[in-house]
């Protein structure tokens, strides 16, 4: 059972403090929904947890090696096919099989299509399927349902539920109701004082 534990974390973006005194925990089998207005620091928080930028203060456990991060961009190469894109990430994370990930997001019929010919929602599904091939226990998801239709959103919620049932954990920044039985953390409560109040709205 893996547990994501964050204690008195402070993060900033471009030198502006965004969040401070943030503490929360996500146990294996649980999800946590991040809410907050645009520019409140959700993306910055997720990037800090993923190890892409250093925290100003505080403690994060476990380290980035247990976390799989899904950003706004899907990281797909337009000239590679769906299967080639996924196989590449599988190889990078030391995995081999991509069939389960393809099936989970109903990508089987698209597997030999170049990513350039996919719609935005289909690309998003491939990007999310990448989470499954990483084999990492804690998922950090930044607006995962952008451009997904209702059916794909429901399928994604099922994938998250299956991941939680396997003992994984998920931290999801989203504004829609995924139908997950998960507590909500409003990051606006941890907004850093001073400069961020004046400029915070500029950071979307």
């Amino acid at each position: 059972m893996v547990t994501l534990a964050v204690e008195t974390l402070a993060v900033s973006r471009g030198g502006l403090p965004l969040l401070e005194g943030l503490s929360f925990g996500v146990a294996g089998g649980e999800a946590l929904i991040l809410r907050g207005p645009n520019g409140s620091g959700k993306t910055t928080l997720l990037r800090t947890l993923a190890g892409l930028q250093p925290a100003d203060a505080g403690h994060i456990a476990p380290g980035p090696e247990a976390l799989a991060y899904a950003a706004h961009a899907d990281g797909l190469k337009p000239t590679l096919t769906v299967a080639e894109n996924l196989s590449f990430w599988a190889a990078m994370f030391g995995a081999r099989a991509i069939d389960a990930a393809l099936d989970a997001f109903d990508l089987g019929p698209l597997r030999d299509r170049p990513a350039a010919s996919l719609s935005a929602g289909q690309k998003r599904r491939v990007g999310l399927a990448r989470l499954l091939v990483t084999g990492r226990p804690v998922w950090l998801l930044d607006e995962p349902t952008v451009s997904l239709d209702t059916a794909a959103t429901a399928a994604f919620a099922d994938v998250v539920r299956a991941h939680l049932a396997r003992g994984g954990a998920a931290l999801i920044a989203t504004h829609i109701d995924l139908g997950l039985d998960a507590p909500v953390l409003d990051v606006a409560r941890f907004r850093a004082t001073a400069p961020a109040d004046r400029f915070g709205a500029a950071w979307a």
């Binding site: 961009a73 990281g75 990078m92």
Partner: peptide, 14 residues
């Protein structure tokens, strides 16, 4: 960098 792969590569085990 543009398509987000660089962020994902940075979080990969390599």
């Amino acid at each position: 960098r543009e398509d987000g792969s660089l962020d994902l590569l940075a979080t990969a085990p390599i």
